[in-house]
Write a protein that binds this DNA or RNA. Sequence first.
DNA 1: CAAGACTCCTGACGGC
DNA 2: TGCCGTCAGGAGTCTT
Length: 281
Amino acid sequence: MPELPEVETIVRQLRPELEGRTVESARVTWARTVARPSAKAFCREVAGLRIERVWRRAKYFVFDFDDGRHLVGHLRMSGRLYVGALEDRAHLRASFALDDGRHLAFVDVRKFGRLALVDDVEAFLPDIGPEPLGPALTPRWLAEQLRARRRLLKPLLLDQSFLAGLGNIYVDEALHRAGLHPLRRSDRVPRPRAEALAAAIREVLAEAVDAKGSSFDTFYRTPEGQPGAYQDDFRVYGRTGKPCRACGTPITRLVVAQRGTHVCRRCQPAPRPRRKAARGA
DNA sequence: CAAGACTCCTGACGGC
DNA sequence: TGCCGTCAGGAGTCTT
Protein backbone atom coordinates (compact mmCIF):
# COMPACT_ATOMS: atom_id res chain seq x y z
CA MET A 1 0.00 0.00 0.00
CA PRO A 2 2.08 2.85 1.18
CA GLU A 3 4.42 4.23 -1.40
CA LEU A 4 6.66 7.26 -1.05
CA PRO A 5 3.88 9.87 -0.71
CA GLU A 6 2.07 7.89 1.98
CA VAL A 7 5.23 7.24 4.01
CA GLU A 8 6.28 10.87 3.62
CA THR A 9 2.88 11.99 4.91
CA ILE A 10 3.11 9.63 7.86
CA VAL A 11 6.61 10.83 8.73
CA ARG A 12 5.59 14.48 8.52
CA GLN A 13 2.68 13.89 10.87
CA LEU A 14 4.64 11.76 13.31
CA ARG A 15 7.58 14.15 13.52
CA PRO A 16 6.04 16.78 15.83
CA GLU A 17 4.38 14.08 17.92
CA LEU A 18 7.42 11.89 18.43
CA GLU A 19 10.56 14.00 18.30
CA GLY A 20 11.76 14.57 21.85
CA ARG A 21 9.58 11.80 23.30
CA THR A 22 11.04 8.92 25.26
CA VAL A 23 9.81 5.36 24.78
CA GLU A 24 8.95 4.10 28.23
CA SER A 25 8.08 0.58 27.18
CA ALA A 26 7.22 -1.47 24.13
CA ARG A 27 4.97 -4.41 23.52
CA VAL A 28 4.94 -6.74 20.53
CA THR A 29 1.83 -8.81 19.88
CA TRP A 30 2.96 -10.49 16.65
CA ALA A 31 6.56 -11.56 17.10
CA ARG A 32 7.45 -11.71 13.41
CA THR A 33 6.75 -8.01 13.10
CA VAL A 34 10.20 -7.48 14.61
CA ALA A 35 12.91 -8.32 12.11
CA ARG A 36 15.74 -7.77 14.56
CA PRO A 37 16.76 -8.42 17.24
CA SER A 38 14.25 -10.84 18.77
CA ALA A 39 10.87 -9.40 19.74
CA LYS A 40 11.79 -9.79 23.39
CA ALA A 41 15.16 -8.09 23.06
CA PHE A 42 13.59 -5.37 20.92
CA CYS A 43 11.12 -4.49 23.67
CA ARG A 44 13.80 -4.55 26.35
CA GLU A 45 16.33 -2.49 24.42
CA VAL A 46 14.01 0.15 23.03
CA ALA A 47 12.68 1.03 26.48
CA GLY A 48 14.18 4.25 27.81
CA LEU A 49 15.41 5.55 24.45
CA ARG A 50 14.56 9.07 23.38
CA ILE A 51 13.47 9.76 19.80
CA GLU A 52 15.58 12.59 18.40
CA ARG A 53 14.61 12.58 14.76
CA VAL A 54 11.97 11.04 12.50
CA TRP A 55 12.75 10.70 8.82
CA ARG A 56 12.19 8.63 5.68
CA ARG A 57 14.28 6.78 3.13
CA ALA A 58 12.42 5.25 0.19
CA LYS A 59 9.38 3.57 1.79
CA TYR A 60 11.11 3.07 5.13
CA PHE A 61 10.53 5.26 8.17
CA VAL A 62 13.36 5.78 10.63
CA PHE A 63 13.49 6.98 14.22
CA ASP A 64 16.93 8.11 15.43
CA PHE A 65 17.41 7.43 19.13
CA ASP A 66 19.61 9.33 21.57
CA ASP A 67 21.97 6.38 22.04
CA GLY A 68 22.88 6.34 18.35
CA ARG A 69 20.68 3.44 17.40
CA HIS A 70 17.65 3.57 15.09
CA LEU A 71 14.24 2.03 14.66
CA VAL A 72 13.73 1.23 10.98
CA GLY A 73 10.30 0.18 9.80
CA HIS A 74 8.44 -0.75 6.63
CA LEU A 75 4.65 -0.80 6.34
CA ARG A 76 4.58 -3.14 3.33
CA MET A 77 1.00 -3.69 2.18
CA SER A 78 -1.21 -2.85 5.11
CA GLY A 79 0.85 -1.37 7.95
CA ARG A 80 -0.28 1.79 9.71
CA LEU A 81 1.08 3.98 12.50
CA TYR A 82 -1.01 5.95 14.99
CA VAL A 83 -0.21 8.18 17.93
CA GLY A 84 -2.81 8.57 20.63
CA ALA A 85 -4.59 6.84 23.43
CA LEU A 86 -4.05 3.12 23.36
CA GLU A 87 -7.42 1.93 22.21
CA ASP A 88 -7.96 -1.72 21.62
CA ARG A 89 -7.15 -1.51 17.97
CA ALA A 90 -7.81 -4.48 15.73
CA HIS A 91 -4.70 -6.01 14.18
CA LEU A 92 -2.35 -4.30 16.63
CA ARG A 93 1.12 -5.82 16.15
CA ALA A 94 3.28 -3.57 18.33
CA SER A 95 2.85 -0.58 20.60
CA PHE A 96 5.11 1.89 22.33
CA ALA A 97 4.25 3.75 25.54
CA LEU A 98 5.55 7.32 25.37
CA ASP A 99 6.54 9.61 28.23
CA ASP A 100 3.61 11.94 27.57
CA GLY A 101 1.14 9.19 28.35
CA ARG A 102 0.25 8.47 24.76
CA HIS A 103 1.09 5.45 22.65
CA LEU A 104 2.47 4.81 19.21
CA ALA A 105 0.58 1.89 17.66
CA PHE A 106 1.72 -0.25 14.77
CA VAL A 107 -1.32 -1.87 13.15
CA ASP A 108 -1.01 -4.29 10.27
CA VAL A 109 -3.77 -6.51 8.92
CA ARG A 110 -1.63 -8.62 6.64
CA LYS A 111 1.40 -8.93 8.94
CA PHE A 112 3.93 -8.13 6.23
CA GLY A 113 5.19 -4.97 7.92
CA ARG A 114 8.48 -5.04 9.80
CA LEU A 115 10.29 -3.15 12.55
CA ALA A 116 13.96 -3.39 13.41
CA LEU A 117 16.29 -1.86 15.98
CA VAL A 118 19.65 -1.32 14.31
CA ASP A 119 23.02 0.35 14.88
CA ASP A 120 23.55 1.43 11.28
CA VAL A 121 20.63 2.34 9.00
CA GLU A 122 22.59 2.24 5.76
CA ALA A 123 24.03 -1.16 6.57
CA PHE A 124 20.60 -2.52 7.41
CA LEU A 125 18.73 -1.24 4.38
CA PRO A 126 19.01 -3.11 1.10
CA ASP A 127 20.51 -1.45 -1.95
CA ILE A 128 18.22 1.49 -2.73
CA GLY A 129 18.33 3.93 -5.63
CA PRO A 130 18.15 7.72 -5.38
CA GLU A 131 15.21 9.63 -3.94
CA PRO A 132 13.00 10.77 -6.82
CA LEU A 133 12.16 14.07 -5.12
CA GLY A 134 15.81 14.79 -4.41
CA PRO A 135 18.43 16.36 -6.68
CA ALA A 136 19.58 13.07 -8.21
CA LEU A 137 16.55 12.46 -10.43
CA THR A 138 17.31 14.77 -13.31
CA PRO A 139 16.00 14.24 -16.86
CA ARG A 140 19.55 13.61 -17.96
CA TRP A 141 20.25 11.04 -15.26
CA LEU A 142 17.08 9.11 -16.01
CA ALA A 143 17.66 9.15 -19.75
CA GLU A 144 21.14 7.74 -19.27
CA GLN A 145 20.00 5.12 -16.79
CA LEU A 146 17.19 3.92 -19.05
CA ARG A 147 19.58 3.58 -21.94
CA ALA A 148 22.10 1.70 -19.82
CA ARG A 149 19.58 -1.02 -18.96
CA ARG A 150 17.46 -3.33 -21.01
CA ARG A 151 14.45 -3.74 -18.85
CA LEU A 152 10.73 -3.26 -19.21
CA LEU A 153 9.74 0.13 -17.84
CA LYS A 154 7.25 -1.10 -15.29
CA PRO A 155 9.45 -3.60 -13.44
CA LEU A 156 12.37 -1.22 -13.70
CA LEU A 157 10.48 1.61 -12.02
CA LEU A 158 9.17 -0.76 -9.35
CA ASP A 159 12.73 -1.86 -8.61
CA GLN A 160 13.73 -0.02 -5.44
CA SER A 161 17.42 -0.45 -6.21
CA PHE A 162 16.88 1.60 -9.37
CA LEU A 163 14.77 4.41 -7.96
CA ALA A 164 13.42 4.72 -4.43
CA GLY A 165 9.83 4.93 -3.36
CA LEU A 166 7.69 4.18 -6.39
CA GLY A 167 5.06 1.45 -6.12
CA ASN A 168 2.36 0.07 -8.36
CA ILE A 169 0.10 3.13 -8.27
CA TYR A 170 2.60 5.85 -8.96
CA VAL A 171 4.44 3.89 -11.61
CA ASP A 172 1.21 3.54 -13.59
CA GLU A 173 0.40 7.20 -13.08
CA ALA A 174 3.86 8.42 -14.07
CA LEU A 175 4.01 6.24 -17.19
CA HIS A 176 0.65 7.55 -18.34
CA ARG A 177 1.72 11.15 -17.90
CA ALA A 178 4.85 10.51 -19.88
CA GLY A 179 2.93 8.69 -22.64
CA LEU A 180 4.98 5.53 -22.16
CA HIS A 181 3.67 1.98 -22.23
CA PRO A 182 4.75 -0.16 -19.23
CA LEU A 183 6.01 -2.88 -21.57
CA ARG A 184 8.39 -0.55 -23.40
CA ARG A 185 12.01 -1.51 -23.06
CA SER A 186 14.02 1.07 -21.19
CA ASP A 187 16.82 1.30 -23.76
CA ARG A 188 14.33 1.95 -26.56
CA VAL A 189 12.76 5.02 -25.03
CA PRO A 190 13.66 8.12 -27.04
CA ARG A 191 15.61 10.62 -25.01
CA PRO A 192 12.88 13.31 -24.92
CA ARG A 193 10.43 10.72 -23.60
CA ALA A 194 12.87 9.60 -20.95
CA GLU A 195 13.30 13.19 -19.87
CA ALA A 196 9.54 13.64 -19.78
CA LEU A 197 9.30 10.57 -17.58
CA ALA A 198 11.63 12.13 -15.03
CA ALA A 199 9.38 15.16 -14.86
CA ALA A 200 6.27 13.00 -14.69
CA ILE A 201 7.60 10.99 -11.75
CA ARG A 202 8.42 14.13 -9.79
CA GLU A 203 5.07 15.72 -10.58
CA VAL A 204 3.02 12.70 -9.61
CA LEU A 205 4.86 12.19 -6.35
CA ALA A 206 4.83 15.86 -5.41
CA GLU A 207 1.12 16.16 -6.09
CA ALA A 208 0.42 13.01 -4.12
CA VAL A 209 2.44 14.28 -1.15
CA ASP A 210 0.45 17.52 -1.29
CA ALA A 211 -2.75 15.46 -1.20
CA LYS A 212 -1.42 13.45 1.78
CA GLY A 213 -1.28 10.25 -0.24
CA SER A 214 -3.93 7.98 -1.72
CA SER A 215 -6.66 6.02 0.08
CA PHE A 216 -9.09 3.91 -1.86
CA ASP A 217 -9.98 1.38 0.80
CA THR A 218 -9.52 1.18 4.54
CA PHE A 219 -5.83 0.33 4.43
CA TYR A 220 -4.15 3.69 4.27
CA ARG A 221 -4.85 6.37 6.82
CA THR A 222 -2.55 9.06 8.09
CA PRO A 223 -1.49 8.87 11.76
CA GLU A 224 -4.24 11.41 12.38
CA GLY A 225 -6.69 8.87 11.04
CA GLN A 226 -7.54 10.78 7.87
CA PRO A 227 -7.56 9.32 4.37
CA GLY A 228 -5.43 10.88 1.66
CA ALA A 229 -7.05 12.58 -1.30
CA TYR A 230 -4.86 11.74 -4.27
CA GLN A 231 -7.01 8.77 -5.35
CA ASP A 232 -9.42 11.34 -6.77
CA ASP A 233 -6.71 12.47 -9.16
CA PHE A 234 -5.72 9.05 -10.49
CA ARG A 235 -5.61 9.09 -14.26
CA VAL A 236 -5.28 5.35 -14.82
CA TYR A 237 -4.80 3.38 -11.61
CA GLY A 238 -7.99 1.50 -10.73
CA ARG A 239 -9.87 3.18 -13.60
CA THR A 240 -10.27 0.13 -15.86
CA GLY A 241 -13.01 0.79 -18.42
CA LYS A 242 -13.36 4.44 -17.49
CA PRO A 243 -12.43 7.12 -20.02
CA CYS A 244 -8.90 8.41 -20.14
CA ARG A 245 -8.92 11.92 -18.72
CA ALA A 246 -6.73 13.04 -21.61
CA CYS A 247 -8.37 11.43 -24.66
CA GLY A 248 -11.49 9.53 -23.56
CA THR A 249 -10.26 6.09 -24.56
CA PRO A 250 -11.32 3.46 -22.01
CA ILE A 251 -8.51 2.53 -19.65
CA THR A 252 -7.23 -1.02 -20.11
CA ARG A 253 -5.93 -3.35 -17.42
CA LEU A 254 -3.14 -5.80 -18.10
CA VAL A 255 -0.69 -7.71 -15.95
CA VAL A 256 2.97 -6.77 -16.03
CA ALA A 257 5.50 -8.18 -13.60
CA GLN A 258 2.65 -9.93 -11.79
CA ARG A 259 1.09 -6.57 -11.02
CA GLY A 260 -2.17 -5.12 -12.14
CA THR A 261 -1.24 -2.44 -14.66
CA HIS A 262 -3.40 0.32 -16.09
CA VAL A 263 -2.87 2.04 -19.41
CA CYS A 264 -4.54 4.20 -22.00
CA ARG A 265 -3.83 2.38 -25.23
CA ARG A 266 -3.98 5.61 -27.17
CA CYS A 267 -1.85 7.83 -24.93
CA GLN A 268 0.57 4.97 -24.25
CA PRO A 269 1.08 3.04 -27.48
CA ALA A 270 2.26 -0.53 -26.99
CA PRO A 271 5.75 -1.33 -28.17
CA ARG A 272 6.04 -3.14 -31.46
CA PRO A 273 6.42 -6.84 -30.85
CA ARG A 274 9.80 -7.75 -32.28
CA ARG A 275 10.58 -11.16 -33.56
CA LYS A 276 13.31 -12.93 -31.67
CA ALA A 277 15.48 -14.30 -34.44
CA ALA A 278 14.73 -12.37 -37.55
CA ARG A 279 16.88 -14.58 -39.71
CA GLY A 280 16.80 -13.18 -43.19
CA ALA A 281 14.12 -10.67 -42.28
C1' DC B 1 21.65 -9.27 -16.13
C1' DA B 2 16.54 -9.85 -16.65
C1' DA B 3 12.21 -11.67 -15.46
C1' DG B 4 8.87 -15.02 -13.70
C1' DA B 5 7.26 -18.01 -9.80
C1' DC B 6 6.53 -18.41 -5.17
C1' DT B 7 6.16 -16.83 -0.44
C1' DC B 8 4.69 -14.18 3.61
C1' DC B 9 -0.83 -12.93 5.49
C1' DT B 10 -5.76 -11.36 5.98
C1' DG B 11 -9.95 -9.61 4.26
C1' DA B 12 -13.08 -8.00 0.67
C1' DC B 13 -15.63 -9.13 -3.22
C1' DG B 14 -17.84 -11.60 -7.08
C1' DG B 15 -19.89 -15.81 -8.75
C1' DC B 16 -22.64 -19.72 -8.08
C1' DT C 1 -26.90 -17.50 3.12
C1' DG C 2 -22.61 -19.54 2.49
C1' DC C 3 -18.66 -21.42 0.31
C1' DC C 4 -14.84 -20.79 -2.77
C1' DG C 5 -11.72 -18.73 -5.87
C1' DT C 6 -9.43 -14.43 -6.88
C1' DC C 7 -7.23 -10.37 -5.89
C1' DA C 8 -4.75 -6.55 -3.26
C1' DG C 9 -0.83 -0.74 -2.65
C1' DG C 10 5.49 -4.76 -1.21
C1' DA C 11 9.51 -7.11 -1.60
C1' DG C 12 12.84 -11.01 -0.62
C1' DT C 13 14.41 -15.46 -2.48
C1' DC C 14 15.00 -18.86 -5.82
C1' DT C 15 14.80 -20.45 -10.83
C1' DT C 16 15.02 -20.14 -15.46
